[in-house]
Measured scan of single mutants.
Amino acid sequence: MSRVPSPPPPAEMSSGPVAESWCYTQIKVVKFSYMWTINNFSFCREEMGEVIKSSTFSSGANDKLKWCLRVNPKGLDEESKDYLSLYLLLVSCPKSEVRAKFKFSILNAKGEETKAMESQRAYRFVQGKDWGFKKFIRRDFLLDEANGLLPDDKLTLFCEVSVVQDSVNISGQNTMNMVKVPECRLADELGGLWENSRFTDCCLCVAGQEFQAHKAILAARSPVFSAMFEHEMEESKKNRVEINDVEPEVFKEMMCFIYTGKAPNLDKMADDLLAAADKYALERLKVMCEDALCSNLSVENAAEILILADLHSADQLKTQAVDFINYHASDVLETSGWKSMVVSHPHLVAEAYRSLASAQCPFLGPPRKRLKQS
């Protein structure tokens, strides 16, 4: 649940008159999402009104509101027999009622949201009550392989729920002597030191190019640089560091992050930047690179990204790559990247197969709970 924001200063709310007192009302909304995959969808019983329910879910471990999704594969009634019906059901509720908006969509073979439908307002739910769409999607369109909505005969539904909580009022009075504290510009100011090479005390040599930097900042941000300058190493004695395995453009992006906490060109060089972040123990930059690479996972590059993640101990990226390969196994196994990995990294192939087997055979063990970014 997000923290209630402070109200904007009255002088910034309007260029008009300023009242002596004010009130700011925040209506709290808890948002969460749920993904439900139905394997072997074409084998569902086709009687009209037949119901399939998901397991229950909530916004978190401490949330007492429990929900589930309900599907009628062949419609709810005679009117909707040519459609799939989809509903959000409130299973248990400690209150007399709650209000919530919802959005349903289908994830296609690429994991993209399609055929989205959402409620136009927050509906009133009581325990045992459901709301949804009797005519969510035509069955003939859903079952047509050309539309790519049932890869490997799996129907994957994605649901986003927004639950309306209580409202909170914050009130106060205006004073004539309003003090406005300026925003912190530390990142910009440190970035200026790097860009202008002011007050530098060490030189970093990268592929024949020299960059002036500040030992204190490098040591504070990177345990690797800290070790170089702290001990009686040649880098500490000469205040000069030779860097041979990072390209200059990648190095500059890494230094921008060290000084400012930002990497504006990360998406263009996420793979190389991940390697640099791993070498210099820049954990936050490493996770930022993992996130960017996750966003660009595809059938063509899944094997290469899995190898990269394994090489640099990028655990979150590795998990996402394995899950992606499992979901698109029939396509990924035909790529040149996968065939190369079979020869060069057989242990990763074995890991992917083990994960695929456990996903398809849940009876082999208890269900695993899916539970950071600093």
Rank of each mutant, 00 (worst) to 15 (best):
K252G: 07
V224R: 15
E20W: 09
M1R: 00
R221N: 03
E232Q: 07
A329Q: 03
F41E: 11
N147A: 09
A227D: 06
F257Y: 05
H312C: 02
L293Y: 11
E160G: 04
E234M: 15
I52E: 05
P7K: 10
A207S: 14
I307D: 01
W67C: 06
Y34W: 02
S80H: 13
L282P: 09
Q212K: 12
M117R: 11
S171P: 04
F257E: 05
K74S: 14
V299T: 12
R139G: 06
E232T: 09
T56A: 08
L84G: 09
A220N: 15
V343Y: 09
D82E: 10
E12Q: 08
A227E: 05
P10Q: 11
L273E: 00
E12A: 04
L317E: 00
A281M: 06
F32W: 12
W194C: 05
E249K: 04
Q173H: 05
A220Y: 14
E351L: 14
Y87A: 08
E290A: 08
P223A: 14
N265L: 05
D77F: 12
C23P: 00
V51I: 02
D153H: 04
M288K: 01
V71R: 00
E160N: 04
R368F: 11
S15K: 11
Q360Y: 15
L143K: 12
F363T: 14
R3K: 02
G192Q: 08
D201P: 00
S33P: 02
D278K: 09
F225V: 14
C202Y: 09
F363C: 14
L88I: 05
W194P: 07
P73W: 06
E118A: 01
K110G: 09
D323G: 07
E230R: 02
E183R: 06
E189W: 11
E47W: 04
V29P: 14
G132E: 00
S105W: 10
V181S: 06
D63T: 09
R124W: 13
D310V: 02
C202P: 00
E234W: 07
L356I: 02
S54F: 00
K115T: 01
G60K: 10
K95S: 06
E232K: 05
K135Q: 13
C289Q: 00
N72F: 07
K103P: 00
E145I: 09
A100P: 01
W338E: 00
N40S: 07
L348G: 00
F324Y: 11
A321D: 05
R284L: 06
K64V: 09
L273S: 01
N72H: 11
K66E: 03
Y87V: 00
R121F: 10
F125I: 00
C93D: 11
L86G: 15
R45S: 05
P367D: 15
S226L: 15
T200R: 13
